[in-house]
Design a binder for these strands. Structure first.
Lengths: 212, 212
DNA sequence: CTTCAATTTGACCGCGCGGTCAAAAAAATC
DNA sequence: GATTTTTTTGACCGCGCGGTCAAATTGAAG
């Protein structure tokens, strides 16, 4: 059995190859749809050899999810109370969109998991995600109270940012089918989403900013 | 073998029970994750009996998809060139949100299919969806050209409507985990999305409407 | 070169899968 | 009530699945 943490070069290399292959397969087929043979073949290993590095299919998936959650939540963590509200939010949108562009498989892995009722991430959803979102929603609410953003429900604002940005990774096939060839979905999305959120978050009328 | 179209009462009843059960199972587990035994049990039939009504797992899935596409695209078809642009768009958002609320399983079935590369709906995507979206995008573009809507990319506006509304069905587990108990996600979403899209589509400045 | 641990493999297992089939049971028809 | 057609069922099949294991191969250390 390999040590609990990769030690040798070969362990490092093969573990990485397995996780990379598993990400590809899991994200495209879902947990049940993925097979160890597919993952093993993609990783360039035999199935028993793969199971020499990970004790089970579940374990591979769990490892992927663990790694994913950190990366996925980081942009939200960076939302800074000291920054300009509009810049902070738009930067967040942009970072999330870049995440969808650069890590679409991770996005689909997560989507697959949630779609199927999140049987393996219920814990983190309550223990990690909810507190973080509540915290940042409170921050946004305070910005709104100060009249620095238009009044909108902070939780649903965050949902809408997740939805619109992840859409380009999760529904990539549909987006490209509808747009047809000759488009750069992510570049267009960046421009569109900046406008969408800026327009809807700019304070107006009674709630106008004090310095304008 | 049953006739091509349900004839007797019992055929009608069992076919419906199968499709209802299959929707439940497919939408929660995806195509590969679903099993005929699960569907049969939910439908209250034995597996061979189920296969007396449908020739294969594929056929059941195909039937569901066929029924789904019509319902799913209807709201977009209703976008009316003669109506008020803002009302038309906001009504569309509302209808899509109601669809997510009332038919979340259909939404997840579709999401599952797209996530996995749309192996069984590539045709309709190009032949039905794209032309319809292009048509309605042109309509929106004409409204923008008339200064009756703020200038945004119509295709991506439609994407953002799909993304934000379907999010509440597809990511239901996550939404409820983050909001916690005591919330009505769809009621809150309706209010939020009306504000979001109204704010971002209201023409301002140079593009202001002529009659205001 | 030897030794010993780390790695890889082929053969195998039990199970659940999608699907078949012949025969029994129920309905419908006369 | 006999006959015919529709519906239901239990037994079964081949296959691919996740996973095991003993043995072979390779690599590192002396």
């Amino acid at each position: 059995m390999p040590r609990s943490r990769p030690k040798t070069r070969i362990q490092q290399k093969n573990s990485e190859a397995i996780l990379e292959a598993a990400l590809e397969v899991f994200s495209q087929a879902g947990f049940r749809g993925a097979t160890l043979d597919q993952i093993a073949e993609r990783a360039g290993l035999s199935k028993p050899n793969l199971l020499y590095y990970f004790p089970s299919k579940e374990a591979i998936h769990a490892e992927l999810i663990r790694g994913l959650l950190k990366v996925w939540l980081d942009p939200l963590r960076e939302l800074d109370a000291a920054g300009d509200p509009m810049d902070e939010i738009l930067d967040y949108v942009r970072r999330k969109l870049e995440l969808s562009r650069d890590f679409p498989r991770e996005s689909r892995l997560f989507a697959n998991e949630i779609l199927q009722g999140a049987p393996r991430v219920q814990g983190p959803l309550h223990d990690e995600l909810k507190p973080l979102v509540d915290d940042k929603a409170a921050l946004i609410a305070s910005w709104i109270a100060q009249g620095r953003l238009a009044p909108v429900d902070p939780h649903h604002l965050i949902f809408s940012i997740w939805a619109t940005t992840q859409h380009y990774a999760d529904f990539d096939v549909q987006v490209r089918a509808v747009l047809g060839p000759g488009h750069d979905p992510y570049a267009e999305a960046d421009s569109f989403l900046m406008t969408l959120f800026r327009n809807s978050l700019t304070p107006r009328g009674a709630n106008a900013p004090r310095d304008a």
